[in-house]
């Protein structure tokens, strides 16, 4: 379960987040939509403990991830930029991360092999990640997020650099994970992705949650045909 209450973050005079509230429970997919620089990544970084909130709370399963190593095994995180250790192979990186997340050695090897077959990177998994394409790095990041089968997933722009085939693959995996009870928070600015998978959508604009609801509710409220129109309508009137 993920719970955000009156979350604020300031950098000097600039307020990146101006009091955000929302929550999501088991089996739910919540998609954060927003323009570039709206505050989506800041919110996610606070939730994962990488940033400190100025005020308010961001909790996963009732606890903050900051200074709390136990809670870190209860979520999987996929960052927006595919920044990986270029001198490690994909397998070495996943093996290190999986082992430190407490995944059993045999299961870990099976998982890495299984994932790399499914995501078609078997031929690259034993090569240094410095030579990977952006899409391949994205796949490694997704694999890392789900390696230890955590109850919560925080995915920042998960389909950003993927071609339509793998974007579809990741979307169906996200739905499948939600059907197994995972609580999934996903940020994106690609509206069709959110429309396809999200149970609930929250639109952030200039640090404020300006609209929230299911895709159909938002379409009804704004009189729009699709989520892209909803987004433009909401942001223009924010």
């Amino acid at each position: 379960m993920i719970e955000i209450k009156d979350l604020r973050k300031s950098y000097g005079d600039f307020e990146a987040l101006k009091g955000i509230d929302f929550s999501l429970g088991e089996g739910e997919i919540y998609s954060l939509l927003g323009s570039n620089g709206a505050g989506k990544t800041t919110l996610i970084k606070i939730l994962t403990g990488l940033l400190r909130p100025s005020s308010g709370t961001a909790k996963i399963d009732g606890r903050s991830a900051r200074h709390n190593k136990k809670i870190r095994s209860r979520f999987g995180y996929m960052p927006e930029h595919p920044d990986l250790y270029e001198k490690l192979t994909g397998e070495e990186f996943l093996h290190m991360m999986g082992s430190l997340k407490g995944v059993d050695e045999d299961i870990l090897c099976q998982k890495i092999e299984g994932f790399s077959q499914d995501l078609e990177i078997t031929g690259h998994i034993h090569k240094e990640m410095g030579g990977y394409s952006k899409g391949m790095k994205q796949k490694i990041l997704f694999m890392n997020a789900v390696l230890n089968d955590p109850p919560n997933l925080i995915l920042d722009e998960p389909t950003n650099s993927l071609d339509p085939r793998f974007s579809q693959n990741i979307k169906s995996r996200i739905k499948e994970l939600a059907s197994r009870g995972k609580c999934i928070l996903m940020s994106t600015h690609i509206t069709p992705v959110a429309e396809d998978v999200a149970d609930k959508v929250g639109i952030i604009e200039r640090g404020r949650l300006v609209a929230e609801g299911t895709v159909n509710e938002l379409k009804r409220k704004t009189g729009s045909d699709n989520l892209e129109q909803v987004f433009i309508e909401v942001v223009n009137h924010a």
């Binding site: 870190r72 990986l84 991360m97």
Partner: peptide, 15 residues
């Protein structure tokens, strides 16, 4: 040197 990759060790459930 880890720089932008530090997220990986900071989100690990290790001390």
């Amino acid at each position: 040197r880890d720089g932008v990759r530090l997220w990986s060790i900071r989100t690990l459930p290790s001390e």
